[in-house]
Amino acid sequence: MTGVRNRPALSVVGGGLGAGKTSLIARLLEQPGMGRTGVVVNEFGEFGVDDLMLGSSAPDAQLALLRNGCICCRPGNDLSEAVRKMIAAAPEPLVRIVVETSGVAELSAVLAKIGADHVLRGMVRLDAAIAVVDATAPDETRAEHIACADRIVVTKTDLVVPIAAAAIRRRIAAMNPTVPILDGQARPDPDVLFNAGLIDGRSGEVQADAWLRAQGSVHVHHHGENPDSIRSWLIETGPQDWTQLSQHIARMSRAAGPALLRLKGIVADRDDARPLALQMVRDQIYRPVRLTREAGDGRSRIVVIARATAAPAVEALAKRLSAAEVAIEVP
């Protein structure tokens, strides 16, 4: 765990075209708390504009540009290579790295790509998945972004009347009450915006409950189409056998297919007093992290975020984990 704490915290900022991702990052880079930060910009086209804007607002920042294609679907390890060069070139050790996705990328797909890149995961620790919502066009925000985010930032609130901005916040909170909603115009505190990972970036301690966010439930409907609705389930059981649990999760993943978006869990281990933290994005399972004995309370809690079509697979997982308990879905 000590080595993981010392790695730069990697956060992903996602949102639609023109949502204000670059402007948000530019404002953040101007703050003193954003020193020793690297930024990777993923442009869909061949010519990069966003990196020029960021370089102008923060000339001392470490910047890298990935052109012509989304991170989530392009082959190879361009992102890990860009991060490796950035870390090596930085005059001081980087504290955090921010990845700005292209406007057409899905947040969960980018997180899955990171999870599949073992080289990248050996250099950084995953921190926050941040969804940017354009206050002037809230209906264009993808339901998947809101469901999978650790933080949501509403941008361009200065361009709408206060009552409209408040209505957008209420709508987002109804869709996903488990995450903080921040105002991009108010220049969010970097520690509040980014500190969403398993390890607290300020203290270096494990923040299991804050990371798991097992309160409330995601309940997002995309254009009213029930098959595309996104839900979350909270599965609570007692201690589990890790080998059997991993097999059950793999079985659930195969059954759910692409409908599975994200899974997090703090699992009480039958054979070890120290609980395990596990995470899965789409079909990519991150290496489990062994926590301290104090981080556990004897319960296993697993949060699954998926489209409605995955319901049978998720509920079957819950039944396998505990014959006496079922997945709790909060409407």
Score class of each variant (00 low, 15 high):
T178R: 14
P180C: 11
M175A: 14
N176V: 09
I181K: 12
T155R: 01
A208P: 10
M175Q: 14
A173L: 12
D150G: 12
V119W: 01
V119Q: 04
A167Y: 06
V160Q: 08
G201C: 00
G115E: 13
R125P: 03
V192G: 00
A186E: 01
F194Q: 09
A149G: 06
A196T: 02
T141N: 06
A166G: 04
G201N: 02
A137C: 04
V153Y: 03
R151F: 03
R121Q: 13
I168Y: 03
P162W: 00
G204P: 06
T178N: 12
R169P: 01
M175D: 15
H118W: 03
I199V: 05
T136D: 02
I114W: 07
L120C: 06
A116C: 08
P188G: 01
I181H: 12
L193A: 00
V161G: 09
V124C: 05
V133D: 03
I168M: 08
D117W: 05
A174R: 15
Q185T: 01
A173E: 10
K156D: 08
A166W: 00
P190I: 12
T178E: 11
C148I: 13
A208V: 15
P138W: 01
A147L: 09
F194C: 08
G122L: 04
A166D: 06
R121F: 03
V179E: 15
V124A: 02
P190S: 13
A167C: 11
T141M: 07
N176L: 05
V153M: 00
I181C: 06
A165G: 02
D134N: 10
D127N: 14
P162G: 01
P188T: 01
A186S: 07
A128C: 04
A164T: 11
P162K: 02
V179Y: 09
P188N: 01
A164H: 12
E144G: 11
P162C: 03
A135H: 00
A186G: 03
D127I: 03
D127V: 10
I181P: 04
G204R: 14
V132D: 02
R125Q: 11
H118K: 07
L193C: 00
A174C: 07
N176I: 08
I146G: 04
I199E: 00
A116L: 09
A196C: 14
N195M: 09
L120R: 10
R121C: 10
T136Y: 03
M175T: 11
R121S: 07
D134I: 09
G115P: 11
N176K: 15
R169W: 00
C148H: 13
A128I: 02
D191M: 12
T155Y: 01
V206Y: 11
H145R: 14
V192C: 02
E140L: 13
I146V: 12
H118C: 08
L198G: 12
